[in-house]
Simulated scan of single mutants.
Amino acid sequence: MRFSRALLHTVAFSTLLAATSLAAGTVSAADKVTLMVGGYEKQIYLPAKLAESLGYFKDEGLDVELLNEPAGVDAENQLLAGAVQGVVGFYDHCIDLQGKGKFVESVVQFSQAPGEVELVSTKHPEIKSVADFKGKSLGVTGLGSSTNFLTQYLAVKNGLSLSDITSVPVGAGATFIAAMQQDKIQAGMTTEPTITRLVKTGEASILVDMRTMENTRAALGGTYPAASLYMESSWVEAHKDTVQKLANAFVKTLKYINTHSAAEIADKMPKDFYVSDKDGYIKALDRGKSMFTADGVMPDDGPKTVLAVLQGFSKSLKDKQIDLSKTYTTDFVKNVK
């Protein structure tokens, strides 16, 4: 069968149009990113919602969807399942997962201290130190979460075995508070604004404070990079342009945090994040704002501290050779103009 020249032109044009549309669709899909946040109302993960509020994602041509997941370990699972492209969570998962043969990396390092506090219920005045945790139920966001990692490390560091304590997954915010009020947990690790809420009502007191660099070094033995944007290494390699745009937006956000007051930052956050106490929210943010990096760069001494903490209690990691250089990258944040 012989085609007319006009028909051939039509077919060629249609093919070109389809290819162009496909390419356009590919670009659009690459710029659509879903990030899972391990509790975006927590002040430690504030950069995620702040970047959205300031319009920095849109400025980069990104369509970013933020999904909320109270426990970091569940956010990690969503990433590994391919349901999301990135997680706003603790860097320690990057090391823990490499020990399990999976490679993820921090591409923007938000903080250089955990921003976590070990609270003790005032119903239990017998708990005067971490060594007194023996036989107690301790609240964590989730089993396998960063709060669980830190709780286990502190217990072992203070002479306890992991069998001496019981980690109870209670999330954060209202669920954490309820668990402490009902004595389901006698102590627990949490962040702002939950800390302020419980201390203000006199229901809990602070035993271990890791909201500042100085206190973190005392508790953990060094700088402890925590909140970050981490992604699967293979995805990062295949989508460098998109990752660079995310880095641009987040570094700009970190600079905003470091050049604006806690009150100015709070004004950009959803009102329900204040939990009916904006003044308390602002005061807590003012105290903890120094935990955030100014440029998204991983602290030089941070990864070794995190590895030492994890190997301090994890039998599965003690004998593993971890390549720390594959758990983070500074390439994208250092390319931000």
Results as ranks from 00 to 15, higher is better:
S121G: 09
V251M: 01
M298V: 14
E76I: 10
E232H: 02
L160K: 00
A308E: 09
F57T: 02
Q311Y: 03
K304T: 14
G173S: 09
L46N: 01
L16T: 13
L207G: 02
Q78F: 11
K42T: 05
K49L: 12
I265L: 05
T216N: 02
A227Y: 07
M180L: 13
A12L: 14
L246G: 00
M231L: 10
G312S: 06
A266K: 00
D183Y: 08
T212K: 04
Q109C: 11
E116Y: 12
I195N: 04
G86L: 01
M210K: 13
V84C: 08
G171C: 05
Y153Q: 03
A179S: 12
D286Q: 10
L119W: 00
E69L: 06
H239K: 13
A249V: 08
G135Y: 10
P70S: 08
D74W: 03
K102Q: 15
K240E: 13
S161F: 06
L22V: 13
A48Q: 06
I265Y: 00
A284M: 04
P125S: 15
R5C: 03
A178G: 06
T196Q: 14
Q311A: 03
T253R: 04
H93L: 10
G296Y: 01
V108R: 03
L285P: 01
S106G: 07
F149C: 05
L154Q: 12
K320F: 09
A23E: 13
R2C: 01
K337W: 02
S146D: 09
Y256D: 06
K278T: 09
K134Q: 11
S53P: 01
V117E: 05
T122A: 05
Y274W: 14
A238E: 15
D331Q: 10
F110W: 03
K100F: 08
L50N: 02
E232N: 11
Y56F: 15
A226M: 12
S161Y: 06
V336A: 04
K134A: 10
K58D: 14
V11S: 07
A218G: 08
T216V: 07
A6W: 04
L138A: 03
A204E: 08
T190Q: 02
G135N: 07
A6E: 15
E192I: 02
Y56M: 05
G302T: 00
A24Q: 13
Q182N: 15
S205L: 07
M298G: 06
Q321D: 15
V306M: 02
V275N: 11
A51N: 04
K289S: 12
G302F: 01
N158W: 03
R217N: 11
I206L: 09
L138F: 04
T191V: 12
T190H: 00
M1V: 13
T10K: 14
Q78H: 12
K318S: 13
L154C: 03
Q152S: 14
T196I: 00
A51D: 06
T141F: 12
T196L: 04
V27K: 11
T196S: 15
A19L: 15
L119H: 02
A218C: 06
T10W: 10
A48R: 01
P193V: 00
D31L: 14
I177Y: 05
G39E: 05
R2K: 14
A155C: 04
E214Y: 05
S106T: 15
L67A: 12
Y256R: 05
V251E: 02
L50Y: 04
K271R: 11
